[in-house]
Design a protein around this nucleic acid. Structure first.
Lengths: 194, 194
DNA sequence: GGTTCACATGAACAAGCGTTCAGGTATAGA
DNA sequence: TCTATACCTGAACGCTTGTTCATGTGAACC
C-alpha cells in the first residue's frame, strides 16, 4: 500500500492524467495507465473522481481558467497599442511553452462533447482583445488603416498556428521578438508597401 | 442485400470513413458506424480493408499524396517572389477549403503512430518552399532583410493556424487577398517601421 | 436449370475498457 | 490495545469494440 494525503494523491492523479491524455488523446487513454503513472491503484482514482469524463473535465476546466485569468490580468496596462499587442504575444507564447502538454490535448480534443463551446468562447475573447488593440492602434495612427475584424482573425489564427507548430515540432521556436517583427513590419521593403 | 460493384463499395467506405474518423477521431470511430454510413455490413468493410488501421492509413496516404502533388505542380512558375508567395497562399487556402474534413482529422491524429513522420516531412517541405521564396525576394529587393529560416517558420505556422481556425470555426473565413495584405504589409503605418 | 464467381451479411468470439465493491492497511487519538 | 477514520487495493462484472467466418444472394455464362 502507498499511503499519502488525499490532496497529494489527487494532485498526482491530475498530473498523470494530463500526461496520458495529452499523449494518447481522451479515447485511447485508459484509467489503468493513468493510475499506474500516478502510483495508485485503479480503484484509487475513483476515490477522487467520479469517472473518466469528470477527471478529464476537471483537468480542462481548471487549466483553462488558470490560463485565461493570467492572460486577463496583464492586458490593460500598456501605454500604446504596439506595446499592448507586444505584451499580448509575449504572454501567449510564454503560456504556450509552459503548458505545452495542455495545448496538445486542447487541439486534439476540440471535438469532444464537453468544452467545445468553452474553447470557442476562449478564442473569441482573445480575438476581441486583439481587435480592440488594433482599433486603438488605428486611432492613434500607430497602425495603418485596415479591417480590424479580419486582421484580428488572422493574427489570432497565426498565433494559434505558431504555438501549435512549436508544440508539435521541436525545431520550431519562435520568440516574442521574432513575432513582433513579423506582425508589425510584414515582409515587403518599405518602398513597396501599399 | 445490397449488391454493387466492388469499386463503388470501396469508394463508399472511404467516404464514410473520412466522415466518421474526422468527426470522432481514430480511437472513437468504430467500424459498425462506418459500415452503416457506407450502407454496407460490418463484414463488408473487411472485404476491402484488412483492418481498421489499414483503412485509416489508406485514407491518409492517398489524400496526402493528392494534396502534396497538387501543391507542387503550381509552385515554380511565378515571375516574382511576391507572386510566388501569393500563389502559395492561394493554393493552400483553396486546398484547405476543399479538404476541411481531412484537415481536422490531420490535426487531431498528429500523435497517431502512423504518419507522424510523413506529416512532419510534409510541413518541413512546405517550409522550405517558403524559405526559398523569401530568399529570392530578399535578393531581388522585394522583401526586406530578415532571417529567412525564422520567417519561414512563422509564415508556415501562421498559415497552419489560419487554416485550422477556418476549419474549426465557421465564422472565420480568410481570403488569399486578406492574407497577402497581412503578410506583406504588416500592421504598422509606413513611417513607423524599422 | 445448373454452376461459378464476386459481393454481402451479421451472429459470435476474444480482448480491452470503465467502473464497482468487498475488503485491507496505516495513522491518530482514547 | 482498541477504535475510528482516511486512504488504498485489485479481482470481477458488464459493455463496447475489432475481427472472423459460415452462410447467403444475385448476375453472368454454359
Amino acid at each position: 500500500m502507498n499511503k499519502r494525503s488525499g490532496i497529494e494523491s489527487k494532485k498526482k492523479i491530475i498530473d498523470a492524467a494530463m500526461a496520458v491524455f495529452s499523449t494518447k488523446g481522451y479515447a485511447k487513454a485508459n484509467i489503468r495507465e493513468i493510475a499506474k503513472a500516478a502510483g495508485i491503484s485503479v480503484g484509487g482514482v475513483y476515490l477522487y473522481f467520479r469517472n473518466k469524463e469528470e477527471l478529464y473535465k476537471s483537468l480542462i476546466n481548471s487549466k483553462m481558467h488558470y490560463i485565461g485569468s493570467r492572460l486577463e490580468i496583464t492586458a490593460g496596462s500598456a501605454e500604446s497599442a504596439t506595446e499592448a499587442l507586444s505584451d499580448f504575444f509575449k504572454l501567449h507564447l510564454e503560456n504556450a511553452l509552459k503548458h505545452k502538454e495542455f495545448i496538445l490535448l486542447h487541439i486534439r480534443e476540440h471535438g469532444f462533447a464537453f468544452g467545445v463551446n468553452e474553447k470557442r468562447q476562449f478564442f473569441r475573447k482573445q480575438r476581441t482583445l486583439i481587435e480592440n488593440i488594433i482599433q486603438r492602434g488605428m486611432r492613434s495612427g500607430e497602425f495603418r488603416k485596415c479591417n480590424a475584424d479580419h486582421m484580428a482573425k488572422m493574427i489570432m489564427g497565426s498565433l494559434r498556428g505558431i504555438i501549435l507548430s512549436m508544440a508539435l515540432d521541436d525545431d520550431v521556436h519562435i520568440t516574442p521578438k521574432m513575432l513582433n517583427e513579423f506582425v508589425f513590419n510584414g515582409l515587403l521593403t518599405a518602398g513597396k508597401r501599399d
